[in-house]
Design a protein around this nucleic acid. Sequence first.
DNA 1: TGCCAGGCCCTCTTTAGGGCCTT
Length: 207
Amino acid sequence: MGNYSIIVLDFETTGLSPGYGDRTIEVGAVLIKNNQIIDRFQSLMNPGMRISSFIESYTGITNKMLRSSPSITEVMQNFASFMAQNHLVAHNASFDRRFLDAELNRINKQRRQEFACSMLVSRRLYPEAPSHSLATLVRYKKLKTGGVYHRALADAEMTGHLWVSMVNDLKSEYKFRTIPFDLMQRLSKVSKTNAPAFLKRLAGKDD
DNA sequence: TGCCAGGCCCTCTTTAGGGCCTT
């Protein structure tokens, strides 16, 4: 389980709920290997319907831009190849996981990779942060940013930097030699109050 | 056309409600 690389992904969408007909309009992702970003994927996709003015202003993605974009089917086929069998990470992963699974389902594919959530991990690692939104965590951790928000690749890139930063903080604070993906998954599931004890116990076994 | 979610997490909790996150 620990030998896969990690895909950090982010979707822009027409709304909040694939179960009520919302579709993806942009996907961005970075590939992380040995705790470094080594590849990127980005594409707009035409959802075949007009997006609201709210989404246009929220993302900066316009109906005009989407009219000349490739179909969701075409992009998701390519994105499935990019993901390969790697582990998946997103900020508030339940959101992106729902959209990923819905769009894969439409092209008769199924996700087999494990998913982890950078927001749930950050709540346990940085309980003192002013909030656990991506923008706030980027400021709080003084992470690299191009100043662009709510575009898929920019958000995936920032989430990637956050993930790398959390892994490095765990390594330096608890003296882990390596941070397996499933350690991050398990950390995101323990209660916030038990997180420090959980990490100390694991760190002890790691030596 | 316009409508819309859901999982986590805290607390004045568990026979519930509401804020946080994501677009």
